[in-house]
Nucleic acid binder design. Sequence first.
DNA 1: CAAGATATGTCAACATGACTGACATAAATT
DNA 2: AATTTATGTCAGTCATGTTGACATATCTTG
Lengths: 182, 182
Amino acid sequence: MTDINFSKGHVASDSQEAASPAPRAGEFRWDIIELLFFAYRDFVGDADHELEAFGFGRAHHRVMHFVYRYPGLKVADLLDVLRITKQSLGRVLKQLLDEGYIVQKTGNNDRRQRLLYATPKGEALVAKLAGLQTDRITRALRDINPEGAAAISEFLRAMIDRDDPDKVLEAIFGIGSKKPRE
Amino acid sequence: MTDINFSKGHVASDSQEAASPAPRAGEFRWDIIELLFFAYRDFVGDADHELEAFGFGRAHHRVMHFVYRYPGLKVADLLDVLRITKQSLGRVLKQLLDEGYIVQKTGNNDRRQRLLYATPKGEALVAKLAGLQTDRITRALRDINPEGAAAISEFLRAMIDRDDPDKVLEAIFGIGSKKPRE
DNA sequence: CAAGATATGTCAACATGACTGACATAAATT
DNA sequence: AATTTATGTCAGTCATGTTGACATATCTTG
């Protein structure tokens, strides 16, 4: 049942598209495009499973992750990183605060700011999820030598937009190209 | 304004977590976890922008992509690949059919099946989006040698779950581990 | 052939996580 | 004192996912 019957018309080694657009002679990176899709799907799937047990979703994970990793992150910074609206963040953040995964502290210099910190309970959740994802990454890197691993890191960095980096990206990339786009 | 003021407590070279969980001595791949997050965010962001002009979302893109790439894909196959319910697919697919991006043909062997094909209009859309993503990938690979590129491909493949692969994954991986889970 | 299984489509209700717009408060800046 | 900034919140909407129930056509099987 359910035989592999689709014709694979455009797959990889196919000759040529008869399509009208013909953008640039057909040299698309279908391989990487699809590998990224499946790899990311399964990568986040690890965490998604666990999150159900807590009654949380991906949104909660992202918030917890960055709050844990960058203690004292401001709400505004979090909004930059996640690229969502404050209304959208508000709902998720409120749950995490109410349930004791995150605490807020008033900023020292600027008392309007609410600096965010993970509680031990929050740290435990992040560690659990990061453990699952680290397992997958470690498995995937097992048969890859250091040069290959460096190439992977370099590739992923180069895939990221560098214009107008948020605070977390500046930390990751080391405050390099602070290029104020006019 | 908006100074880089978070304390970076747990970042990379930090000594040790005082947290309670302590899963495996703290050797998490924070680097790859975060690079994947940002790389994928910007990777899909390319397409998201363009899609707005068409009044479509990511869901439409995913459907169009796989229908174009694997002509004659059955509805059931598409459900396997996207891992969504048929009701969810139905809404998106109906729009793409109504607006002439996809056509259905009755299966030859099994007349219950609806085999899906991209129209020229649909192919043009897929090509446009794949062009944007290919540009990003090509840019990212520019300074990476063939061995590095091979490592990247190997890594992404190894990140994907191989148990119970769907039709598309079988095509990508070459019908390898056809392990029928009982 | 009749019965059952399969492939697909559809209706209805609901959940999550995005969005916009408007407005409120407290604290910093001018 | 007036304005700007950082944050929070209310209200409504949209996109995309979910369950559950059911309909129809077609294939498979006893």
